[in-house]
């Protein structure tokens, strides 16, 4: 049981039925066959159940540093903040800066600083969510957005209990990210190509990035837009509206 809210946390579900066999030299071989991700996955499942009970849609944003995650959030809040109550958990190695940018928009936000760790994990989100609920407005949100630590590698391995994992690549980064960092794309449900207002200045073929990503993960949904100019942004906003509608109707 979690101290903060009494929600179920399933962290003690491991199995004690190992097979034993004796070898020479008095050593014992024990068969374990347990995933090292098991503890995180159990916590992630418990987070997801908790989010469902509260009817909150949860997104996990993954990208390299500087691809526009925080800017995407700022523009999203400007456009639909009055119809959908948004809350944000920011992950960074150091500083409160991103959470301050979001709070300046009048939206509850907390900052998790990992102090050097390259990713967020499910237990950090569990604690972070309780902290967020204590913020003004944090107790009545429809959509929780988790902005992961800027890194296309490590965050892809850790389930946080999100409903949808979103991977972002901005135009200046180049279209070959899916081929170079496959796990971020195979584990996501949505791929956002951002900063498309810069397409005239960079050698970036949207069709190529799309094709590379879909060859790794045929079920991936792909959108491209510029949050700054608003071009193509409506598709993203409609997507969020639909997710919130679905979660409320569950």
């Amino acid at each position: 049981m979690c101290d903060a809210c009494g929600c179920q946390t399933h962290t003690h579900d491991h199995d004690h039925g190992h097979g034993h066999s004796q070898t020479h030299d008095d050593s014992v071989i024990v068969e374990i066959n347990r995933s090292l991700f098991a503890a995180n996955d159990a916590m992630a499942r418990s987070n997801r159940e908790h989010f469902d009970e509260e009817r909150i849609v949860v997104l996990n944003l993954i990208s390299s540093p500087g691809s526009g995650k925080t800017t995407l959030l700022e523009h999203t809040i400007d456009r639909i903040g009055s119809e959908i109550k948004i809350g944000v958990i920011e992950g960074d190695i150091e500083t409160e800066r991103d959470a301050e940018r979001i709070r300046a928009k009048g939206v509850p936000a907390i900052q998790l600083t990992t102090g050097g760790a390259c990713h967020l994990d499910a237990s950090m989100i569990h604690r972070g969510f309780h902290q967020l609920q204590k913020e003004p407005g944090g107790n009545s949100i429809d959509l929780l957005v988790i902005e992961n630590v800027g890194n296309l590698v490590c965050p892809a391995t850790f389930d946080l209990g999100e409903h949808t994992r979103v991977v972002l690549v901005s135009v200046p980064e180049g279209p070959d990210k899916p081929a170079k960092y496959p796990k971020a794309f195979t584990s996501s449900q949505l791929f956002l190509i951002t900063k498309t207002d810069l397409l005239p200045y960079f050698d970036f073929e949207v069709a190529e990035a799309r094709k590379e990503a879909l060859s790794l993960n045929p079920s991936l949904q792909v959108m491209d837009f510029s949050a700054t100019t608003g071009e193509g942004f409506e598709v993203w906003l409609d997507y969020l509206r639909e997710l919130v509608r679905e979660e409320k109707g569950k």
């Binding site: 070898t23 008095d26 050593s27 014992v28 071989i29 024990v30 068969e31 374990i32 066959n33 347990r34 995933s35 090292l36 991700f37 195979t186 879909l214 060859s215 045929p218």
Partner: peptide, 20 residues
Amino acid sequence: DTLLIAEEGNDLILQQVEME
């Protein structure tokens, strides 16, 4: 066809431990 879907290969498993 080029649409191939990976099955398994995602896990990290502690399989066996030998101890005194």
